[in-house]
Simulated assay, not measured.
Amino acid sequence: MAEDYAAKMSRKTQAELLLYVQNYTEYREEAVLAALDELEARGLEPAAAHTELRATLRTSQQETDRREAQARQEQAEQELARRQLRGEEPVAAEAPTGPALYSPGTITIFSVLFSMVAGGIMLALNLRTLRRTGPALLVLLFIVVYLIGGVFLVYWLRQQNTQLESWIGSLFNLPAILVYNLYFWPRYIGGQPYRSREWLGPLLICGLVILGFYFWLRQMMPAVPV
């Protein structure tokens, strides 16, 4: 509770009040200001006589209040840290910072569930968010080259009359996922702090694309005679 300096000064003698004014650097600013108010109220000192001193005291009081508030805040933070170490207070999780990006886990899951194309596009969108246009275009080029290479590989295997293409389809996305996570992400994103980007929208888009492709295939397939 703040001390009532006005009431305290009302009980002082004139000599005691003047002592506060003359040695103002040894007392709290509030006490000296209250002593000045009391002297003026008694008609012992004119208000104009201490205008400069009052301005100095008010400036000093503001600085004192700032230091004391900072000290109280630091003390409260130290006490909170001690309570957290003792398990008396939960440790608040730091809010993630940085741009919103699709995480490597999200990219991997989309590549497995849908296609390496979906994961690659998400990675390219990350790079675009970071304004790294060159690497984003490089990811898209990798997707195109990878798809073309995969088609030629399957065609070549069929020409060799092997059954390898039957299991290549199940592992087709794996090399691309490794390239995304072990090359593109460390090289062009690295330890960049980021917030996890919402993935429900891409999930709905991928689902609609697959559904549309399924109905397109049904329309293209010739009717089977009964």
Rank of each mutant, 00 (worst) to 15 (best):
D4R: 08
Y5R: 08
Y5L: 04
A6R: 13
A6D: 15
A7N: 10
A7K: 10
M9K: 02
M9L: 01
S10A: 09
T13L: 08
T13W: 10
T13M: 05
T13G: 12
Q14D: 14
E16I: 00
Y20N: 07
Y20F: 15
V21W: 12
Y24M: 06
T25P: 14
Y27I: 02
Y27K: 04
Y27L: 03
Y27G: 03
R28S: 13
E29S: 13
E30R: 15
V32K: 08
L33V: 00
L33N: 06
A34Y: 05
A34E: 08
L36P: 01
E38N: 04
E38K: 00
R42T: 04
R42M: 04
R42A: 02
G43D: 08
E45M: 15
P46F: 09
P46T: 04
A47N: 07
A49F: 09
A49P: 00
A49R: 14
H50I: 00
E52L: 11
R54H: 11
A55K: 13
T56M: 14
L57Y: 03
L57H: 05
R58H: 11
E63G: 03
T64Q: 15
D65E: 15
D65T: 14
R66T: 15
R67W: 12
R67T: 13
R67P: 14
E68Y: 12
E68C: 00
E68W: 09
A69I: 00
Q70K: 10
A71V: 00
R72F: 04
Q73W: 13
A76Y: 08
A76M: 05
E77G: 02
E77C: 00
E77M: 03
E79I: 14
E79Y: 10
L80V: 15
A81Y: 06
A81F: 04
R82K: 13
R83D: 12
R83H: 06
Q84A: 01
R86M: 09
E88S: 02
E89G: 01
E89T: 05
E89S: 02
E89L: 08
E89P: 15
P90G: 04
P90L: 01
V91S: 05
V91E: 13
A93F: 06
A93G: 02
A93T: 15
E94M: 10
E94H: 10
E94F: 09
G98T: 06
G98Q: 07
P99M: 02
A100D: 12
L101M: 01
Y102N: 02
S103L: 04
S103N: 01
S103Y: 06
P104R: 00
P104A: 00
P104Q: 01
G105C: 00
I109D: 10
S111F: 06
V112Y: 11
V112H: 06
L113M: 11
L113C: 12
F114P: 05
F114W: 09
S115K: 01
S115Y: 03
M116D: 12
V117R: 09
A118V: 07
G119L: 05
G119Y: 08
G119E: 07
G120R: 02
G120T: 03
I121T: 11
L123K: 06
L123Y: 12
A124H: 03
A124F: 02
A124P: 05
L125M: 11
L125D: 14
N126A: 01
N126L: 03
L127C: 02
